[in-house]
C-alpha cells in the first residue's frame, strides 16, 4: 500500500544516474514542489523524461530548476521552446536532448507501463525522428508496412522513478486529477519502478468512480 512520506524523504528516493519520468505539461500537472526538493537534494546525472523542459518565466519550481543546475545529463522531451536554456545546452553539448513527437512519447511510455514491446505509429516517417539524424539523438528505427501503410516502430520507455501529480489522492494512493493537468501523469504512473505522487489534497478515501489512476501503482504520497 502507498505510504505517505515527506517531500525530503521522497526526494531521497531519486538516486544519482536514475531515469526519472516527470508528469505535467508546462504549467499544468507537474509535481513542482517535489521537483524543487529533488533539486535541493543535489542528485545528479539524471535522465529526465517529460513533455517539456519547463517554463521558468511562468512558474518558479519545476524541471527547469534541475536542468539549470546541471543535474540532468539527458532530457527526453517533445517541446523545449519555452525554456531557452534547454536549446543552449543541447547546442553546446552540455546536455543530451532527445526530441520525441508528443503522441509517440505518450505511447512509448504507455507501452512501457502496460507491458508492451513497443508501438507502431505513422508519426515521424521521413523525418529526423525516423532516420536516425544525430541532432535529435535517435537511432535508426525500423519501418513496418501493415496493410499497405508504413509505420515506425517505437520502443517502450520505462524509468527508475516516476514523479507524478494529483489534485486529490487518498491514503490508498488512488488519484483524481482535475482539468487538463492529467496529461502525461496517467501513463507515467504505470511506467516507473518507483512511483511517487505529489498531491494538492490528501483525503481518506476517494469515490471509486472518481479514481483516474488506481492506487495499486503508487508507492509513495507526498502532500504539497
Amino acid at each position: 500500500m502507498a505510504k505517505v512520506i515527506s517531500l525530503q524523504e521522497a526526494a531521497a528516493k531519486v538516486k544519482d544516474g536514475d531515469s526519472v519520468m516527470v508528469g505535467g505539461f508546462l504549467s499544468a500537472g507537474g509535481p513542482n514542489e517535489l521537483l524543487h526538493a529533488v533539486a535541493e537534494s543535489g542528485v545528479k546525472n539524471l535522465t529526465a523524461i517529460a513533455n517539456d523542459g519547463g517554463d521558468p518565466k511562468r512558474y518558479e519550481h519545476g524541471l527547469h530548476e534541475l536542468i539549470h543546475n546541471g543535474q540532468v545529463s539527458w532530457l527526453w522531451a517533445t517541446h523545449i521552446g519555452l525554456n531557452p536554456e534547454v536549446g543552449q545546452k543541447m547546442n553546446d553539448g552540455s546536455m543530451k536532448v532527445t526530441l520525441v513527437p508528443q503522441g509517440s512519447m505518450a505511447e512509448k511510455i504507455r507501452a512501457g507501463g502496460y507491458g508492451l514491446g513497443g508501438v507502431l505509429t505513422p508519426t515521424g516517417i521521413g523525418t529526423p525522428v525516423g532516420d536516425g539524424s544525430e541532432d535529435v539523438g535517435n537511432t535508426k528505427k525500423t519501418i513496418m508496412n501493415i496493410d499497405g501503410k508504413d509505420y515506425l516502430f517505437e520502443r517502450p520507455l520505462k524509468a527508475d522513478v516516476a514523479l507524478i501529480y494529483a489534485s486529490k489522492c487518498d491514503k490508498y494512493g488512488n488519484i483524481f486529477i482535475h482539468g487538463d493537468a492529467r496529461n502525461f501523469n496517467t501513463v507515467m504512473a504505470f511506467a516507473g519502478k518507483t512511483v511517487i505522487v505529489q498531491t494538492n489534497e490528501l483525503v481518506d478515501m476517494l469515490d471509486p468512480d472518481e479514481v483516474l489512476i488506481p492506487g495499486v501503482v503508487v508507492d509513495y504520497i507526498v502532500e504539497k
Binding site: 504549467s27 499544468a28 505518450a106 482539468g179 493537468a181 496517467t186 501513463v187
Partner: peptide, 30 residues
C-alpha cells in the same frame, strides 16, 4: 492552473467539452 492551453496559459473548457489525457488526446489525433 489545472486548465491551461498548449502554450501553458490559462484557458477554459467549452460547453460540451471534455478533459482527456495525453494518450487519449493523441489517439484522437492519429
Amino acid at each position: 492552473w489545472e486548465v491551461v492551453d498548449a502554450g501553458g496559459a490559462p484557458s477554459s473548457v467549452a460547453i460540451g467539452g471534455a478533459f482527456i489525457d495525453s494518450a487519449t488526446s493523441f489517439g484522437l489525433i492519429r
